[in-house]
């Protein structure tokens, strides 16, 4: 090599810079790994001492983060990055190969199809097997719906009970009161759940034909929203409206729970009530229509 030309000097400078830079990155990576190691040890200690979620999270963050930061830095700053170039392989096979493939396929198919009766038999056997074995995966799962969606546990004369099973008296609610009730014998039922509201002390007629349904100001509606089935448990006392917490359908209590806002398509079914001789609230009959969201078989 010739003596110091400016070029050589420059390249020596560069090399020195690289060396310094490399050493720096080595240190960064090393510190990262060390931190990760310490955090992992700390994690072990915390765990051994009974664990603490926040400390575990923080130490995991350092342990994993140190590892990740170190490895990435190493892979980014201490190994060559190229960029390298590589040719893409042709994805497509040559024409001849594709033709040959089709030929092979056809040859095999011809050999099979020669026995066409057997092919049909095979098809029948496999098809039947496929259909029949599908049944356990569908039909065994549950009963046919039948009348399931049309009935609730409310019957003629069902006493209204609270979730704990105690019967509801006509004196239990004040004006502006609200209570979730169930048919006697089925407290807590998902389908029969009914919301009992008392907007007044006077009998309430919500719609023509429902003259006797609201004795002493008691109104009972199915608590299952006609939109998506959420419990309509949100009673706004001043405006006498029921709001569904899921999708904000609004029902007007005094006019038969007609939907006045939001996505619900139908009013909440109303339960006809009466007060028996001992002062308990009872249902005159079950709901006169299916409760809850719509389904295909349901007419109107």
């Amino acid at each position: 090599m010739s003596s110091s030309t400016p070029e050589l000097k420059q390249s020596q400078d560069k090399e020195r810079l690289i060396k310094v830079s490399e050493r720096r990155f080595e240190r960064v990576v090393g510190v990262s790994f060390l931190l990760s190691f310490l955090a992992t040890v700390g994690l072990g200690v915390v765990y051994w001492q009974g664990g603490q979620t926040q400390v575990e999270g923080a130490l995991l963050f350092i342990a994993l983060g140190g590892l990740g930061f170190g490895i990435v830095s190493w892979g980014k700053y201490l190994v060559p990055q190229g960029p390298y170039v590589q040719e893409r392989e042709e994805l497509q096979s040559p024409e001849s190969e594709r033709e040959a493939f089709v030929e092979s396929l056809e040859r095999g198919a011809n050999q099979i199809q020669r026995r066409s009766f057997l092919v049909k038999m095979l098809g029948a056997a496999v098809g039947a097997f496929g259909i029949i074995t599908l049944f356990p995966f569908i039909r065994s799962l549950g009963p046919q719906p039948k009348k399931m969606l049309y009935v609730t546990n409310w019957k003629k004369g069902s006493a209204l009970v609270k979730a704990d099973g105690t019967k509801v008296r006509a004196t239990d609610l004040e004006v502006g009161g609200v209570l979730t009730v169930f048919p006697d014998g089925h407290p807590g039922g998902a389908i029969s759940q009914t919301i009992l509201i008392r907007p007044s002390f006077q009998d309430i007629v919500t719609k023509p034909g429902r003259e006797t349904w609201g004795p002493q100001g008691y109104l009972a509606y199915s608590k299952v929203c006609t939109h998506a089935g959420c419990p309509v448990g949100l009673y706004q006392e001043l405006t006498q409206q029921l709001l569904c917490p899921c999708h904000q359908s609004l029902f007007d209590v005094m006019t038969g729970a007609n939907p006045v806002f939001g996505p619900a398509p139908r009013p909440l079914p109303q339960l006809p009530l009466y007060i028996d001789s001992q002062g308990y609230l009872r249902a005159q009959a079950g709901y006169d229509e299916p409760i809850g969201p719509g389904f295909w078989e349901r007419g109107a």
Partner: peptide, 20 residues
């Protein structure tokens, strides 16, 4: 190395959220 390290970085962010 970069991709492998990135796994640990992903895990560390999720662990930080998970704990804190």
């Amino acid at each position: 190395m970069q991709a492998g390290g990135f796994f640990f970085l992903t895990a560390s962010v999720i662990a930080a959220l998970g704990g804190l």
